[in-house]
Simulated assay, not measured.
Amino acid sequence: MPKISTEDAHLTVLNLFTTDKPENQDKLIAEMRKIVDAAAYEGWMSSTVHAGQEFHGTANFIQWRSGEDLEARYAGEEFNHRTMPVFSEITTSIRLLQNEIAHTQRHPKLGGVTEIGPHRDDYTVIEVFKVAEDNQKALVEALGTGQDWLLDVPGYRSHSTLRGLRARGLEGSFAVTYAQWDSKEAYDAFRNAPEGEKSQARKSSEADIQALATSSDWNGYKVVHTRAAGGQ
């Protein structure tokens, strides 16, 4: 199963799609599964498909050997004349985000590696933060090393911080967090906690992030499919 680690030198790609109807989300997932199950691209390592839970949409967490391998895929006939036209018909937005893993943190009960896949029961939250280029490094640090207080939050499992490198469908600098929770209920309780119930560490952390990020958006997901090179 795919793992998220700062020790890996490969490229991490998050393809995020939104749509306006549940049936279109189903179509997206079906199309993504077809692509993942047939994937044999040079340099492709794994793909993990996520179904939107809070808002209609999907996410594909993809690991590539290098940016050069990914660009070869983007330049291909299939991607430009079959894949993108199909997705464009059933989506309201498409963002193809290239990243590097900057930081990972896990609750001690998870052990030493952040693992993703449909064999787990995580409620996964992916949040995208826009940021001025000069502030990207500081934001990545605030989203990563500044989050130790999460270990004391009920239902928290892990989060990983990704530094944005380049993107299609998103202008400017960005950072992404990929978080795992016990359940949607646990995450909702955390996100909607009254200000008076927040720890001082959380308040300080949120203030730092708010001062650096220019905007953000998120969705909750359930992992529904994964496949790695070699059919694993």
Rank of each mutant, 00 (worst) to 15 (best):
M1W: 03
M1G: 11
K3G: 06
D8F: 02
A9N: 11
H10T: 12
L11N: 09
L11A: 08
L16S: 08
K21D: 08
Q25D: 02
Q25Y: 04
L28V: 13
A30H: 05
V36K: 12
D37N: 15
D37P: 00
A38R: 10
A39V: 07
A40V: 01
E42Y: 06
E42M: 08
W44M: 07
M45K: 07
H56I: 03
N60H: 07
F61W: 15
I62M: 14
I62C: 14
I62L: 09
Q63F: 06
Q63W: 14
R65L: 15
R65F: 04
L70R: 03
E71K: 13
E77H: 10
F79I: 04
N80G: 09
T83F: 12
S88Q: 14
S93H: 06
I94Q: 15
R95A: 12
L97D: 04
Q105I: 10
P108L: 07
P108H: 05
K109I: 08
I116V: 13
I116W: 07
D121Q: 10
Y123F: 12
V125L: 07
V125P: 00
E127H: 07
F129T: 00
A132E: 12
E133F: 05
E133M: 09
E133Q: 14
A142K: 01
T145R: 11
D148R: 03
W149C: 00
W149R: 05
L151E: 11
L151S: 05
P154C: 03
G155Q: 02
S158D: 06
T161L: 07
L162K: 06
L162N: 12
R163N: 09
L165R: 12
A167E: 05
A167Q: 02
R168P: 02
G169I: 08
E171W: 10
E171L: 08
G172F: 09
V176P: 00
A179V: 00
A179W: 00
Q180T: 09
D182N: 04
S183D: 11
K184P: 00
E185M: 11
F190C: 01
N192P: 01
E195Y: 13
Q200F: 00
R202N: 07
E206M: 14
D208T: 12
I209H: 00
L212R: 08
A213I: 01
T214A: 05
T214R: 05
S216A: 14
N219K: 06
G220P: 04
G220K: 06
Y221W: 12
K222T: 09
R227G: 01
A228C: 11
Q232G: 02
